[in-house]
Amino acid sequence: APSGASLRREGDPAHRWAMVVDARKCVGCQACTVACIMENDVPENSFRTIVSTYEVTEQGKAGSYMLPRLCNHCEDPPCIPVCPTGATFQRRDGIVVVDNTVCVGCAYCVQACPYDARFINHETQTADKCTFCVHRVEAGLLPACVETCVGGARIFGDLNDPDSAVATLVREENPKVLKPEQGTQPRVFYLGLDPRFQGKVDGTPTLWRPSSKTHARKEHA
C-alpha cells in the first residue's frame, strides 16, 4: 500500500471512488466542463475539468480526438506529500481534497501534480481542484460532470464494489491511465486512450489564453 495510506482521514474506507472515461463516447460538448463550473462555483477562466480537443493527422488523414481531463485522485498522489500544511489530503475513500481553511496558497501542490489538475482559486486564494463532487457523492448522487455527460463517456463508481460499472470496466477492458510512468496510480482510467495523448502532447498548442481579466468579478451575478 502506498506510504500515504496511513495519513488518510475522513471518508468511508469501504469505498474507493474512481472514474472510467470512455474516450470513444466523448463528443467534446464540454457539458462536463460547464456543469463542474456551475456546480462548484469554479472561478471564471479556471477549470477543474476540461475536455481537450485535438485534430490529429496521421499519414495526412485528419480526425478529431477528445480527451476529458480532471484530477485523477491518484492512489499515490504526489500533490499530498509536498503540502506543507496538510491542507491537501486523501480521504479513506480515495478522494483527494483540499481543506481551504488550512491551505496557505503556497501552490506547491500545483507544481507537484503531474496532470495540471490543480490551480489557485483566485476567489478563495487557496488551492483548488476536482473533488469528485464529494458533496454529491456523499448524498448518493453522481458528480456533476458525470450526471450530465452527453456522450456517456464519464463513468463513475466504487472500485471496491466488484459489480460496479467502473470495477467491471477496469477488470475487463484493460483501461489505460495518463502518465503511468509517474507512478501516481491514477484512479481515473481511460478507454480508447491514444498513446500520443498519454503524456505531454506533442503538437501545436491552443490559441487560448487566460483572460486579462482573470480576477475580475463574475459577469453574471
Partner: peptide, 18 residues
C-alpha cells in the same frame, strides 16, 4: 505525409509560483 496534432480546444494554466 503529415503527422500532426493541433490543440483545437484546451485551456492553459497560469503560473502558480509568481
Amino acid at each position: 505525409m503529415d503527422n500532426h496534432i493541433v490543440e483545437v480546444i484546451n485551456v492553459t494554466r497560469e503560473v502558480a509560483w509568481l
